[in-house]
Design a protein around this nucleic acid. Sequence first.
DNA 1: TGCCTTGTTCAAGGTTTATTGAACAATGGA
DNA 2: TCCATTGTTCAATAAACCTTGAACAAGGCA
Lengths: 110, 110
Amino acid sequence: MTGLAHPDIDEIVLSDVLAALGDETRLAIVATLARNEHAAMTCSQFLEFGSKTALSYHFAKLREAGLISVRPEGTRRLISLRRADLDQRFPGLLDSLIACHAASPAGAEP
Amino acid sequence: MTGLAHPDIDEIVLSDVLAALGDETRLAIVATLARNEHAAMTCSQFLEFGSKTALSYHFAKLREAGLISVRPEGTRRLISLRRADLDQRFPGLLDSLIACHAASPAGAEP
DNA sequence: TGCCTTGTTCAAGGTTTATTGAACAATGGA
DNA sequence: TCCATTGTTCAATAAACCTTGAACAAGGCA
């Protein structure tokens, strides 16, 4: 088992975080996670954003950048935003990003 | 002349901005511009970050993403952060990003 | 005029990215 | 046990990325 590597808090790199979010799909995933921080979300709840394979790829990107944590639970994976870790490493950044995305989502008025 | 196209304020896209900043070189360029917002900067002041050609490429990326404006002046180009435009489009984002970068620059302690 | 400086463009190259479909592993329930 | 569900891995592909060096354009100054 390779074991679902997550970077430590102080291994989270700003440019990696921004590169991970510099993609509409991953930005939408993170925004969705932020909107549902109370609930535990699984990969299959994001199928509107892409195929299973594509999602697996994007979740790996987000996990390696330190944005999300992935915890196996039975046959599925519970996904969550690393809100506390990110707030500690980059205070205010996540809120700022999410507010900006909410104010101008990808599919704004034509 | 193709004419140095700059996106309008409402054409600036969040994921494009983040993708542009998801690169150490461009992040460092923007941080430098933010630190010297009073002065007018030219391309050659950034040679520590890469070759002429590489810089030309990165400046084009930043310009197309809406982060900087480039104004020809004689034989050189005056580069500036689109601070006001960005603050209008994404309030607080630029300050947040710059603060995060300043708190954990690329070349932190080994 | 001629030269120097500043910066762009081009073609080439190697790397990384994002997507797809097929095959696989593991859990859980009938 | 068999089967459905969940999600990963693999190989392949097309596109985008970043860097390089050589060549070019244009302004300023002698």
